[in-house]
Design a protein around this nucleic acid. Structure first.
Lengths: 182, 182
DNA sequence: GCGAGACTGGACCAATCGGTCTAATCCTGT
DNA sequence: ACAGGATTAGACCGATTGGTCCAGTCTCGC
């Protein structure tokens, strides 16, 4: 196989992340994931003994890592917090247009799981990770503790809300317009 | 029948709205709704010929009407836009504590439907209705057109994002803290 | 009181759900 | 070359899914 040596486990995670993001946890059957990942059922339950829920947690973690990279890429070259935040919004808008990102992938994947508490806790952990990443950059760029935290959480809220409205309107402009309110 | 004169159709809509709000469209089976509404299957398909999707649309509309009433109640006695918006956030926080409102009921109900486009269009219509309601109050309270629209959409984004973080953290404080950013 | 439409009750159905199981195959260290 | 764990392959399972269907019951206008 000359082109795609990606191991089965990774294929499963990516396919699951994609599907869960657009259709939600219960909207996707394991058969869908298997078909998208070109993997047989046996592989899924080998790599993820707890099955679908296990896979969803891994998919959410993977999606979160992507988001953390996006945050880092946005703030790394920035000279002010506002500049970094603006870049992030524009990158998200672009991603929205290209991949049809519908809403927050974490919300779609975890906010309707079977065992509610484990999923909720994972979502909280992931969201706090995003906010912490932004907060680090805010402090690096000179903001004091309290201000940095407030601005990091504010940006999180704006993006989450913007994602929702952008999906309903099918327009990434919503995300770009967020920059006026940072 | 001395105690519960609420017609079956209304019971179905309310039960569906409650369940969809907390577990999402695909997370709820029609059997769940039927059990919660104490209604037999025949009634559902009599009142909603298209079945589950039909019911979900009606449930979303009902949930939206509740939200519109909440907006009206918050702004009616307000003397400034900020005062009304603040009241709205506090009312939502209270509701979050009492009923365990998890996230936006419209998002949970409509953002993963079977026929995507019809559901998305309905969500857009409902969201625009919320924003229009806030916008009316904003203009009534003296804001000019452009300013009123910007603030109405900003409030929408804040609440949507706040809902998400509040759910992940299981804390209504997030919603109350929004008032500092209106 | 009677006939017709509105509504209820629930048996029933094919399809799909997530998950289990075992045989075959691949891969790697020796 | 070979042993043995890691991985794949897919047949198979009981439970549940959304949906259909029709016999019964209620509630009107007449």
């Amino acid at each position: 196989m000359p082109d795609a040596p990606m191991p089965t486990k990774d294929r499963l995670i990516r396919a699951a992340a994609d599907l869960f993001r657009t259709r939600g946890y219960h909207g996707v059957g394991v058969a869908d994931v298997l078909a998208a990942a070109h993997a047989p059922k046996g592989s899924l339950y080998h790599h993820f003994p707890d099955g679908k829920s296990d896979l969803a947690l891994a998919a959410a973690t993977w999606a979160s890592d992507e988001m953390l990279r996006l945050i880092a890429a946005s703030f790394d070259g920035a000279e002010t917090f506002e500049a970094g935040a603006t870049t992030l919004c524009y990158k998200l808008a672009k991603l929205f247009d290209i991949t049809g990102w519908d809403t927050c992938p974490i919300a779609m994947t975890l906010f309707e799981g079977p065992d509610n508490e484990a999923f909720r806790a994972h979502a909280e952990h992931i969201y706090d990770g995003w906010i912490a990443e932004v907060l680090d950059h805010a402090e690096r760029l000179g903001l004091n503790d309290a201000d940095a935290r407030a601005k990091a959480e504010h940006l999180f809220v704006l993006i989450q809300g913007g994602w929702m409205l952008a999906r309903a309107r099918r327009s990434s402009d919503v995300l770009r317009n967020l920059t006026a309110r940072i």
